[in-house]
Simulated scan of single mutants.
Amino acid sequence: MKDAQAAFYDSLPLLRDFNNLTDPERFTAVPTEWVLGVADVVDSTGQIGRGRYKAVNMVGAAVISAMINALRGQEFPYVFGGDGAGFAVPASAAEAARSVLADLRRWAEEEFSIALRGAVVPVAEIRQAGKDLRVARYAPSEGVDYAMFSGGGLAWAEAEMKAGRFEVPYAAPGALPDLTGLSCRWSNSKAQNGQIVSVVVQPTARATETDFADLSRAVLVAAEGLDRSGHPMPESGPPIRWPPPGLALDAHVSRAGRNLLVQKIKLLAQNLMIALLFKSGKRLGNFEPGHYKRTVSRNADFRKFDDGLKMTLDCDPATLKQIQTVLEQARKQGSIHYGLHAQDEAMMTCFVPSATRDDHVHFVDGASGGYAQAASAMRA
């Protein structure tokens, strides 16, 4: 039986309308006894410059998949940030969080030569610093829901991590997190309306919650004029090709210490069967390809709140100009920082516990730098 702490997240209502998340009253304070885990890739901008953003995305998503597997089905709030992730868990899972982050730091270094920061921050420390950590649950479909964060606590914890506080040390060499279900089999989705635009907006210290809620509402109203509110994945699902573009990444993620070449060959065969199955559209047991692809699109996480607003939109030039006008006016008033990054395609990184259920998770980002590049532009 779950204790009261662990049952907290289960008790939160599922919000079906993303616009409702602009209301601060929709967010509930995370229990003070909980901890917040944060992780991000060091020098993600440099990694992107070397053409490694898909690897950066995969490492960021690995944080979430490893925690989901470690907690064995227990629901908890998490958010994907492109080059990192954040999650909150009860005190009873704090050691599991530290162990997962330690393993991930070692694995990312050994498997991808990527340096990953990791920290576990008590929520009590966040509140002592004058910040808060509040959460809401947004359900884009019947199959999944995603956590949204507000209160400034997540951003504060990330800054503390980058300053070297609350650090989780590396695990011993050879550490292997459980990444079962993490994959990137889909091909990128090309923009249909203009460009794939990654948007990152954060409030300044001068902005009140009401100020930021009003600004977010104005941006979302502009985006609603786009087809499907700017959803960057086709309604029928993203394209799939053989051989898949992410084969090498999938092999690194799934090999679990086994020979890399052997794992690539195994995945080539598996993905050929999958591609043929999707092409034929024929049902195989409880798996129906058309339904699965449509569910992938419905489940996609293309907009979120994490102490700010992040969106990956298939955006036409007129709407992009409208959004920029709204954001620039707010920036001049000193209430926000923002960054935009435009590219031709969107990409997706997936966590699929079972292909025959509808609870598969799909993280969307721009394919040539996405959120990380937008955040870099914001800092500049």
Rank of each mutant, 00 (worst) to 15 (best):
V352L: 05
A346V: 05
D307L: 00
L340R: 05
S297Q: 08
R331F: 06
H360K: 01
L284Y: 12
R357A: 12
M348A: 00
D358A: 11
I323S: 05
H291G: 11
D307R: 00
L327T: 06
F363Y: 14
K282W: 09
G369A: 07
K279V: 07
D344C: 01
V296E: 11
K293L: 14
E345T: 08
H341C: 02
S297D: 09
P317T: 05
I336V: 15
H291L: 09
F302V: 04
L309W: 12
M273R: 10
D301E: 11
F305P: 01
Y292S: 06
G281T: 06
Q322S: 12
G281L: 03
C350I: 02
K304E: 09
S368T: 11
M348R: 00
L320H: 14
D365N: 08
H291Y: 07
P317G: 03
G369W: 00
A367C: 06
G281Y: 02
F305K: 03
A330V: 12
D316I: 01
A269W: 10
P353D: 11
K304A: 02
M273S: 12
K264M: 15
Q329R: 13
K264V: 15
Q333E: 15
E328Q: 14
R298M: 08
A275E: 12
M311T: 03
P353N: 09
V262H: 11
L320I: 03
G366N: 00
R331W: 04
Q333G: 12
A300W: 00
F351A: 05
C315Y: 06
R298S: 10
A318V: 10
T325N: 08
N286E: 11
T356Y: 04
K282Q: 13
D344G: 01
H341W: 04
L261S: 05
G370H: 00
M347L: 12
T356P: 01
F351W: 13
H337R: 15
R331C: 06
P289N: 05
S335D: 07
A342E: 07
G290A: 13
T319G: 07
S280L: 14
L284I: 15
T356M: 07
Q324E: 15
R294K: 13
K332F: 04
V326I: 15
R298A: 14
L272A: 13
Q322Y: 02
A342D: 06
P317Y: 01
L276D: 07
I336N: 05
P353L: 07
T356L: 02
T325A: 13
K264Q: 15
K279Q: 14
F287Q: 06
A367E: 11
R303M: 05
Y338T: 08
